[in-house]
């Protein structure tokens, strides 16, 4: 500011307004959720390059082809990577300490070419370990029907 005008600490303003959204998931994801409801893991498959997408995608990113084939995947998969989370992001966008650390894993389901990010139960994890999917058709929110993974052994 110019001479004679002291702003001091720059003032702030806020508003308690949170714009809401409702995203249609599309038919591919809808079919995926239908499958989970029946305890099945449904993935979409590219008819061109045979790439298998889980979660399913309508279009193969590599071939630009519609993935109109569906495959049911086995319950087993492999941990591609993981992190032990000591915090989570709270509603206000800051880290909050978790009471108990939890494992977030990237799991490649057997037969799939993409990964799912999910909680891994059991405390310990390693890259390459075999895991089994945990499906909860009764989950409160359908997005959590794929509840997570547990060690295969």
């Amino acid at each position: 500011m110019g001479p004679g005008i002291e702003v001091g600490q720059v003032p702030r303003a806020a508003l308690p307004i949170n714009p809401a959204f409702q995203w249609s998931v599309g038919n591919w994801m809808d079919h995926f959720y239908d499958g989970l409801k029946e305890g099945k893991l449904l993935a979409s498959k590219c008819p061109g390059c045979a790439r298998v997408y889980l979660p399913p995608r309508m279009i193969c990113e590599r071939c630009f082809t519609k993935c109109e084939e569906w495959v049911e995947l086995p319950e087993t998969g492999t941990v591609e990577s993981y992190t032990v989370a000591h915090v989570k992001v709270g509603a206000n966008g800051e880290f909050e300490e978790l009471p108990q650390p939890e494992v977030i894993a990237l799991v490649k389901q057997d037969g799939a070419d993409t990964c799912v990010a999910a909680r891994l139960q059991g405390g310990s994890a390693s890259v390459g370990m075999k895991v089994k999917v945990v499906i909860d058709p009764e989950a409160e929110s359908f997005v959590n029907m794929l509840a997570g993974y547990r060690p295969a052994e």
């Binding site: 995203w23 249609s24 998931v25 599309g26 038919n27 591919w28 994801m29 309508m58 279009i59």
Partner: peptide, 8 residues
């Protein structure tokens, strides 16, 4: 359009 998501 409630049959597709944004990307689709």
């Amino acid at each position: 359009r409630r049959d597709v998501n944004i990307a689709e």
